[in-house]
C-alpha cells in the first residue's frame, strides 16, 4: 500500500515498498488542464530543498515542480516524453515524474498526509 506525502505547492512524494516517487497531485493536474509537455532532469541529478526539478506545461500555463526535500534523481518517467497526458490520466500513479532517493526520509514527516492535504483543498 503506497503512502502519499504532499507539499503546499501540490507536489507529492509516494512511498511504495521502500521506493520513492515524485509527481504533481491530481488536484494540480486538474488545475493545469491538458498537459502537453513535461521537462525532466537528467538521471543522477541532485536537488536541494526549494529547487525547481521539473516543468510541466499545458496549452496556456506552465508549472514548476519544486523539491521540498533534498533529493537525488534515480530515474525519470520516460513514458512522459511521448505521453504527457499520463499526468492527466493518472497523476499519482503511472503519471509520476521522478523516482528519487532521499537523503533523509525522516523529513517526510514535515509534509502533509492525505487527510491534511484534502483539508487544505477544501
Amino acid at each position: 500500500m503506497a503512502t502519499f506525502y504532499y507539499t503546499k505547492t501540490h507536489e507529492y512524494i509516494r512511498e511504495d515498498g521502500g521506493e520513492y516517487y515524485l509527481g504533481i497531485s491530481d488536484h494540480a493536474q486538474q488545475e493545469l488542464g491538458d498537459i502537453t509537455y513535461v521537462e525532466l532532469p537528467a538521471e543522477g541529478a541532485e536537488f536541494a530543498q526549494g529547487d525547481v526539478c521539473c516543468t510541466v506545461e499545458s496549452v496556456k500555463a506552465v508549472a514548476e515542480v519544486y523539491t521540498q526535500l533534498a533529493l537525488k534523481v534515480v530515474a525519470v518517467n520516460e513514458r512522459l516524453e511521448d505521453e504527457p497526458e499520463l499526468v492527466n490520466q493518472d497523476a499519482q500513479g503511472a503519471g509520476w515524474l521522478l523516482k528519487i532517493e532521499l537523503a533523509d526520509t525522516g523529513v517526510l514527516a514535515s509534509l502533509m498526509d492525505q487527510a491534511a492535504y484534502d483539508a487544505m483543498e477544501k
Binding site: 502537453t36 509537455y37 506545461e57 499545458s58 496549452v59 496556456k60 500555463a61 506552465v62
Partner: peptide, 13 residues
C-alpha cells in the same frame, strides 16, 4: 502552438 515557451506565459523565465 507551444505558447507555453513564450513570454506571455513564462514571463521572465
Amino acid at each position: 502552438t507551444l505558447q507555453a515557451r513564450e513570454q506571455h506565459i513564462r514571463r521572465e523565465k
